[in-house]
Structures are given as structure tokens and as C-alpha cells.
């Protein structure tokens, strides 16, 4: 019952956001069509910028998979991952998501391609990636911009919160998708 509701909200959230934004725009007399087109140009720029990163990561991970190295690691640690019901392929996603947003998107694509878009590993990876931010990049940019050299408790906070996020992602995905 709750799961059906969650599915319904997931499905309706995007259409509702779009509708609210458009109605608000019209009420405020914003030229919605021109503004949309202007913003959409950014989307093209984003995907062109991201392409080199995708090529770098997807090619490297495809090579790794084809070589059999991932299976070797999987076999070595299969007990641990099985106990936690986490597919071994998710491990790189958990690590890289704090380092590079484009790279983790490449890893996600690789998992979705390999296991199928409706598989549990794909959904788990999607939830992990969809709920995360590239912690180290943010720290570098924000502190770099004002010349802060001592991060004090910001770094540890970022890492601990990322761990909390991963635990939550695994728990929620296991409950909903397994």
C-alpha cells in the first residue's frame, strides 16, 4: 500500500512540478516559451561538457569488466556483499560519487547496461547517484574561492554525511526494490 503510494508520488512529482512552474510563470507574466528555450540551451552545453568524462569512464570500466577483473574482486569479497545484499559492482559507485559527478554517471550507465535498467543493481545505483553530491569537488570550489586552507570539521562532515546517505540508499532500495 505504502509502496504503491510511493510509486504514484514518484510518477506524479515531475508533472506536478512542471505544471506549478508553468502556471507560476504565466501568472508572473514571464514569456514561458522563450525562457524555456533559453534555459534548454544550457542542457545541451551540459551534455556536451560531460561527454569526454563519459567516454573516459565508460571505456575504462567496460575494459575492466571485459577483462574479468570485476569478477575476481566479486569472488574474493562475495561473502561480504551477499550478506549486505549489495551487488559488488555498486562499490565503485559508492566511492566515485563523492569525487566526480560525470564519472559516477559513467559508472551508473555501465551498471544499467550490464544488469538491465529494471534490475535491482541499476535501481540501487540510481538512488545512490541521484541522492548524492560530489563532496570533494564542492569542498575544493567553495573553500578555494575564498582562500580557506584549513577545512576544520567540514571534510569529516562531508564524508560522514556521504556514508549516512549510502546507508540510507541501501536501506530504502532494499525495502522498495528487492
Amino acid at each position: 500500500m505504502l509502496k504503491t503510494a510511493i510509486n504514484a508520488i514518484s510518477l506524479w512529482m515531475i508533472p506536478v512540478i512542471i505544471l506549478v512552474v508553468l502556471i507560476w510563470g504565466l501568472v508572473k507574466k514571464v514569456p514561458v516559451y522563450e525562457t524555456f528555450v533559453d534555459g534548454a540551451k544550457d542542457g545541451l552545453r551540459v551534455s556536451v561538457n560531460i561527454l569526454p568524462y563519459l567516454v573516459a569512464i565508460i571505456v575504462a570500466v567496460s575494459m575492466l569488466r571485459a577483462s574479468g577483473a570485476i569478477e575476481l574482486v566479486q569472488n574474493a569479497f562475495s561473502g561480504v556483499f551477499e550478506a549486505l545484499k549489495i551487488p559488488a559492482d555498486i562499490l565503485p559507485v559508492m566511492i566515485v560519487r563523492s569525487l566526480s559527478g560525470s564519472a559516477v554517471l559513467g559508472l551508473l550507465s555501465d551498471i544499467v547496461q550490464n544488469f538491465g535498467p529494471d534490475s535491482y543493481p541499476a535501481k540501487l545505483a540510481a538512488v545512490i547517484v541521484g541522492s548524492s553530491e560530489t563532496t570533494f569537488y564542492v569542498l575544493a570550489v567553495y573553500f578555494g574561492s575564498v582562500g580557506i586552507k584549513k577545512f576544520r570539521h567540514a571534510l569529516l562532515t562531508g564524508i560522514l554525511a556521504d556514508c549516512a546517505g549510502i546507508i540510507a540508499a541501501v536501506a530504502v532500495s532494499r525495502w522498495l526494490f528487492l
Partner: peptide
């Protein structure tokens, strides 16, 4: 490119309309 263009287009309206 397609999905990001659409989403960022909608979000630009949210930005410009003061939402």
C-alpha cells in the same frame, strides 16, 4: 542532452518567474 535541455528549460522559468 534531450532530457537535461527540457528540465533546465523548465527550471529557467522557475528562476525567471521569481519562484
Amino acid at each position: 542532452a534531450g532530457i537535461m535541455a527540457f528540465w533546465l528549460g523548465i527550471m529557467r522559468i522557475a528562476e525567471k518567474s521569481g519562484m
